[in-house]
């Protein structure tokens, strides 16, 4: 019987990710899709911290972490170094994928400039933004990827606050505006879709950017067993549509038969528990408008 998923584990167990951690699921899937010829770049964040407390590492592929805001630049340096090494005859006829796997803070906020530079310069990298919609590593502070009305420790809900007061920054579209050959959104609840996109991104020459939604038990407030279910609801409600933009051509890669009410997604998470039905209606309208824009009725 043919296997549905590759068996090689390039992220070792024993890492210190929380039970039900979405980031570890993403890394397992991404590396299964990419294979061994990959160099991973992490910026500071959950993933870096829980996989590499000296003297142990969970990584079975070459891995580097430097600082928080420079994943794009470090990846650029590695990509060019590989080119230089090829001139010496190393890595002959091999395509080594340089893969930054960086959180929403390290991508949409502090690392935004380095990312933009790397995309604009056309480096052959596969940049994966693992989006858990806040600074989870430091205690759930809001980032520019925190969605409207979610409560975060620096945007808490309160008597005079409904939590985060700005909608989520649209990183995939910002990446696409750089005119790069491949942009996609993905969610860990759809492994085949995600892995297909990573594989495609590895094969395409030039920069690829994949924005992956990755539920977080701690920051979003739900039972660990619901990580996949919540991700699925994010997609089924149209909160997080799955699409790709290949050489400028936009395509929805997963179309829910009928979009579920956003309320189902919202009511499962503690970060939204302060919301009234009227508040959720506002969010529903916002999601409806965005779906319409993407042609996802």
């Amino acid at each position: 019987m043919g296997k549905r998923f590759p068996r090689e584990e390039l992220l070792a167990p024993g890492h210190r990710g929380c039970a039900g951690c979405g980031a570890s699921i993403l890394v397992r899937m991404a590396l299964k899709a990419a294979g061994r010829d990959v160099i991973v770049v992490n910026s500071t964040g959950c993933l870096e911290v829980f996989t590499t407390p000296y003297p142990e590492t969970a990584w079975r592929v070459p891995w580097i972490h430097t600082a928080f805001e420079c994943g794009g630049a470090v990846a650029s340096g590695i990509e060019r170094a590989i080119k230089a090494l090829k001139k010496r005859g190393k890595f002959k006829d091999r395509k080594i994928t340089v893969m930054p796997i960086i959180g929403d803070g390290g991508t949409a906020d502090i690392g935004f400039q380095a990312l933009s530079g790397a995309l604009e310069r056309g480096h052959d990298i596969v940049y994966i933004m693992y989006d858990n919609e806040a600074y989870m590593n430091t205690g759930v502070q809001r980032s520019s990827a925190t969605p409207l009305f979610a409560s975060a420790t620096t945007a808490p809900a309160g008597k005079r606050s409904k939590g985060e007061d700005r909608p989520k920054k649209d990183m995939a579209m910002i990446a696409a505006a750089h005119g790069i050959p491949y942009v996609a959104t993905a969610c860990i609840s759809y492994p085949e879709d995600l892995m297909k996109k990573v594989k495609k991104a590895c094969e395409i020459e030039g920069p690829a950017f994949i924005h992956v939604l990755q539920p977080c038990t701690v920051g979003w407030g739900y039972n660990p067993e619901d990580t996949i279910k919540i991700g699925r609801l994010a997609v089924e409600t149209g909160f997080f549509p799955l699409y790709e933009i290949e050489h400028g051509e936009f395509r929805i890669t997963y179309r829910p038969a009928k979009r579920k009410p956003l309320k189902e997604y919202i009511r499962m998470q503690k970060r939204y528990r302060h919301l009234t039905d009227e508040d959720i209606e506002i969010l529903q309208k916002y999601v409806d408008e965005r779906c319409k824009l993407l042609g996802l009725e």
Binding site: A12, G14, H15, P55, R60
Partner: peptide, 15 residues
Amino acid sequence: GAIIYEPGSTVRNKT
């Protein structure tokens, strides 16, 4: 440089 030369060594950490 605190480089870790043993890939996947977290297997020692039984979670």
